[in-house]
């Protein structure tokens, strides 16, 4: 209930507040909403199942590219293209997940980091001339609802909001289902879970595939709903974006879906706010000062709230296993 209230307080007013020249803020909110979907997928994987992933920008980018290629190069309806954004990263995750989920801690971190770098490298290298190389893909069509294309910032934002709500709803069902309990069980003690007959690697694999598909879907949404209608490997698949996604869930709070949303909002808005503030400092270039404060915020939040901002409010007592 508290979560729904928070959701309404944070996400509804912008529709009415940001108008005219401030419509630009709505497009930032739209991107924050899309990132929030990725952050939730990481909540399920890193928070509930306890597996780190440093390749979610890879799945996000793969989703974005699948949707864009399907709609631009093959003329498939954008709505159906979204299915590719969901399925292609999912299938890749299934393929690489089978050996990957057996790894632990930093070995898992390394393997997923490598997967992310490989996806980025392949997208950038332009195999068979389908990804457009470093330049990426431009003029991606818009989603069409009842014969009207969603092209305005308000339209993008409302569409993202709807998707975010639906995905939040299903994620909520998922983490409270029996499968959610299985995930928490293998997180708190894999050995105990194994001894009562849970197939630990199977649960991990399912969580990995599901999480990758969610991130891919978010990538597809980014293709159609970001203000530029343009994607390139550095924007959607870079290693730094993977790191940013992980930072979102850790800063927001690993152990609740709201944490991911809060983290996504903070890390998307912080640079924008800092940009406004640092414009007025003499001597130092604003973008550098912005990065310095951004980095210090990471450190400060983690020192004050080692479990992330949200879990403190919700009083979760357990630590990561």
């Amino acid at each position: 209930m508290k979560k729904i209230l928070l959701f309404i307080i944070v996400f509804i007013p912008p529709v009415f507040l940001f108008k005219g020249e401030y419509a630009y803020f709505l497009s930032i909110m739209a991107i924050a909403g899309i990132y929030a979907i990725v952050a939730m997928s990481l909540n399920i994987l890193v928070g509930y199942t306890g597996q780190i992933s440093l390749c979610h920008a890879g799945f996000f980018g793969l989703g974005a590219y699948s949707a864009a290629i399907a709609s631009v190069s093959h003329g498939i309806n954008p709505w159906f293209s979204l299915a590719f954004a969901f399925l292609v990263p999912g299938m890749l995750a299934l393929l690489v997940g089978i050996p990957t989920v057996r790894l632990k801690e930093h070995y898992l971190a390394m393997a997923t980091l490598g997967i992310g770098i490989i996806i980025y490298g392949v997208l950038r290298a332009n195999p068979w001339d389908i990804t457009g190389g470093p330049g990426g893909i431009c003029s991606i069509p818009s989603l069409v609802v009842l014969g009207k294309a969603i092209e305005s910032d308000v339209g993008h934002y409302i569409a993202v909001l709807l998707f975010l709500s639906i995905i939040l709803f299903f994620s909520h069902l998922l983490v409270n289902s029996r499968f959610g309990q299985l995930m928490e069980a293998i997180n708190s003690s894999p050995h105990a879970a194994m001894s009562v007959g849970i197939n630990v690697n199977m649960v991990r694999l399912k969580a990995f595939v599901l999480s990758a598909s969610m991130a891919g879907l978010a990538g597809g949404l980014y293709s159609f709903l970001s203000p530029l209608s343009y994607i390139n490997p550095d924007d959607v698949a870079s290693v730094m974006l993977s790191v940013k996604f992980i930072a979102m869930v850790v800063i927001g709070g690993l152990f609740s879906l709201t944490g991911g949303i809060v983290g996504a909002l903070i890390l998307t808005w912080l640079p924008e706010l800092l940009r406004q503030v640092t414009q007025y400092t003499p001597g130092i270039s604003p973008s550098d000062l912005e990065s310095i404060i951004y980095g210090m915020a990471f450190i400060a939040i983690m020192i004050m709230y080692p479990r992330g901002l949200v879990s403190r409010w919700e009083g979760h007592g357990y630590s990561q296993g």
Binding site: I52, A109, V243, A247
Partner: peptide, 10 residues
């Protein structure tokens, strides 16, 4: 592990 990683990234 994850908290420490984020700090060092900061």
């Amino acid at each position: 592990l994850t908290t420490a990683i984020i700090i060092t990234i900061g």
